Each structure stands twice: as C-alpha cells, then as structure tokens.
Amino acid sequence: MFRRQFHVLVAALVAGGGLLATGAVVHAEAHWPSKPIRMIVPFAPGGSNDVIARKLAQRLSTTLGESVVVDNRGGGGSTVGSNLVANASADGYTFLFVSGSIATTAAVQKTPYDPLKAFTAISRVASAPFVVLTREGFPAKTMKEFIDYAKANPGKVNYGSAGLGDSTQLASELLSNVAGIKMVGVGYKGISPAQMDLIAGRLDMIITTVASIRGTPTEKLPMLAFTTAKREPEYPNVPTVRESTGLDYVVDVWWGVFAPQGLPAAIRDRMNREIGAIVAEPEFATFLKSAGAAPAPSTPQALQDQLATDVVRWTDTAKRAGIQQ
C-alpha cells in the first residue's frame, strides 16, 4: 500500500513539474522580449545586408521596447554567421538577417546546416531587381541582340560576378541555361571590382543590383534589361528580360529574417507582425528605395517556400554550370 502511495506521489510531482515547466515557457513567451536581442548578419559591415539590417534593428528596438543589436559574423559565404544562429537557443533572442545568399551558398558548397530544416522563417523584408549591364561599345544594344550575339559566338562573351556561389554568378549562369548560350564567368572578391573592369572594357557583361551601381560610373553604362517580372518604375524605358526576349527568366534579390528552428509560434508571429508594420512605414520604404530596394514583407510560410524554391533552383543551376565545390 505504501509503495502504491509512493508511486502516486512521484507521478503527481512529475506531472506538477511538467505543468510548472510549461507554465514557465508560456510566461516567458508572454513577456518576450525581456532582454536585448541579437540579430546576426553573416557578412562584414557596410554591405546591403548590414545596412538594411541596422535600419530594421533600430526600428525594432523602438517597437519591441528592447535593444536589437546587429552582430556581424562574416565568413564562409554567409555560413559562419548562419551556423551560429542554427545552433543558438530558440528562445527569441537570436535572429538571422540574411539575403537569398543563404540559398545560393548551399547550392555550391556543403553547409554545416540544412538551410531548410535549421531555421524558423520569420518574414521577408525587402527585395531588389537585378539589371543586365554591358560595356560601352558592346555589339548588342538590346537583350534580344545580346542573346543572339552570344549564341553566334559561344564562349566568347564573358561576365563578371562577385565570386563563387554569389547570386550574381548564379543569376548569370541561369541566364545561360535558359537562353541556351555559353558564357565565360570571371569571379571577383565582390561586385565592385567586376564593375570597374566592365567600365574598363575588360568584361562584356554583369548582372548586378541597382544598389551596387547607384552613384557610380557603372550607372552610366548600357542597361539592357531588368530581371524582374515587370518594368522598374524608376527606369520606365528599360524592358525586362522576359519582355525583350520571351524567355522565362525572372530573378530578384531578397532579404529576410530567420530564427533557430523550434522558435515558439507566439514569438515568431509577434516578430512577423512587427516587421510587417515597420516595412509598411513610409519612412522605411523611402530608406529602402535609397538603397535600391523595395518593401517585400511576407508570412513565415511564404518565406520558407521562397527559400525552398531557391535552394532547388540554384542547386540545379550550379550543377549545370559545374560550379559546385
């Protein structure tokens, strides 16, 4: 009898402990955030990821009532910082601000995490178009002429990119795949030196963002087309690749926020609402425009779907181009 009473008591204590633990978690979620939040940017300071993340963190600090601190952890094509988040506690105090490079990097190298399983998607923040630029004096003056010229001269057209696995490289290789052309890629440590070589006439073409060329001599080079689905309002006379060639080619750059896998839904949804409200602010939209981007908030599921689609797309592109490590 005493043994039975002992087991009943133990079971009650265990159940009570479980309830207390559950209650503690619910309490923590209800009072989130209660301390500073770290937002890891897996790139060095100064780039588009860093600039947009800092503006977002500044506004989140105000709306959440706790400091959101940007922590730059560059290296490994974004894998160093991303891996820190993948292995962090899913308590709502560590987030990842990253571009679509989280998918392109995984397409060309084995990452220490599975990009589709290691993170909880929160929200997309912004997107930006790519633009196709050529050097002065290049024979083709339109996108259609460029494709025709490249087909007639296989292997004689070169393009510059920001390096292995960068979206500028994969966007160029995807164009080659879709158009059935053969170009020679030249990788650089960043897009700026590639743009300088395009100005100097040592490259024939680059695909890059408006943000990277704004206010530079590259902005004055011939713009053949944008890679978006619709024309860019700021450049109404520049067609899209699809419009100019009929090719099913639409590519853009996006930035989003992720957390470690297992983040409580209540915190995920709160963060999603806060980001959506900030991105909808006219001041934030103006800031993004100055950076060559536009507001592009999303649901968590939409961001997860975008990532999944991009991983498949860029992995296939990398395989076809033979650029996987």
Results as ranks from 00 to 15, higher is better:
1 M>I: 01
12 A>L: 14
14 V>C: 12
21 A>E: 05
26 V>S: 11
29 E>F: 01
33 P>V: 01
33 P>H: 00
33 P>G: 00
33 P>A: 00
39 M>F: 09
42 P>M: 06
49 N>A: 12
49 N>R: 00
50 D>S: 11
51 V>C: 01
52 I>G: 01
52 I>M: 10
53 A>L: 01
56 L>G: 02
59 R>L: 00
64 L>D: 09
67 S>V: 10
68 V>H: 15
69 V>G: 04
69 V>R: 14
71 D>A: 02
72 N>Y: 03
80 V>K: 02
81 G>E: 06
83 N>G: 10
84 L>G: 09
84 L>V: 15
84 L>T: 12
84 L>R: 13
85 V>T: 11
86 A>I: 11
88 A>V: 07
88 A>M: 05
92 G>R: 06
92 G>N: 11
95 F>E: 07
99 S>H: 14
106 A>Y: 12
106 A>R: 12
106 A>K: 09
111 T>P: 11
114 D>A: 14
116 L>T: 12
117 K>E: 12
120 T>L: 06
122 I>T: 08
123 S>E: 09
125 V>M: 04
126 A>K: 07
127 S>C: 07
127 S>M: 09
128 A>W: 00
130 F>E: 02
132 V>S: 11
133 L>G: 04
136 E>S: 15
137 G>Q: 04
140 A>S: 10
140 A>D: 14
142 T>L: 03
145 E>N: 07
145 E>D: 14
147 I>Q: 04
149 Y>T: 08
150 A>P: 10
153 N>V: 07
153 N>Q: 08
154 P>H: 13
157 V>K: 13
157 V>F: 14
158 N>D: 05
162 A>T: 01
166 D>K: 07
168 T>C: 01
168 T>S: 15
168 T>D: 08
170 L>P: 07
171 A>H: 05
171 A>Y: 07
172 S>R: 08
173 E>M: 09
175 L>C: 01
178 V>N: 08
178 V>F: 05
180 G>P: 03
181 I>M: 08
182 K>V: 13
182 K>I: 04
183 M>H: 05
187 G>N: 15
188 Y>F: 15
191 I>F: 15
201 G>W: 11
201 G>Y: 10
203 L>W: 11
204 D>I: 08
208 T>H: 12
208 T>A: 04
208 T>Q: 08
209 T>V: 02
215 G>C: 10
215 G>N: 10
216 T>I: 07
216 T>C: 10
220 K>L: 01
221 L>R: 10
226 F>C: 05
226 F>N: 02
227 T>F: 03
229 A>G: 08
233 P>D: 03
234 E>V: 06
236 P>S: 02
236 P>R: 06
243 E>M: 02
243 E>S: 00
243 E>G: 00
246 G>R: 06
250 V>H: 04
254 W>Y: 14
255 W>P: 00
258 F>D: 13
264 P>K: 01
266 A>L: 12
269 D>A: 06
270 R>F: 02
272 N>A: 14
272 N>F: 04
284 F>R: 04
284 F>V: 00
284 F>S: 00
284 F>I: 00
286 T>L: 08
288 L>Q: 10
288 L>Y: 08
291 A>R: 01
294 A>W: 03
294 A>Q: 11
305 D>Y: 06
306 Q>E: 11
307 L>W: 12
308 A>M: 06
309 T>Y: 13
311 V>Y: 09
311 V>G: 13
314 W>Y: 15
316 D>Y: 03
317 T>F: 05
319 K>D: 13
320 R>W: 07
322 G>Y: 02
322 G>R: 01
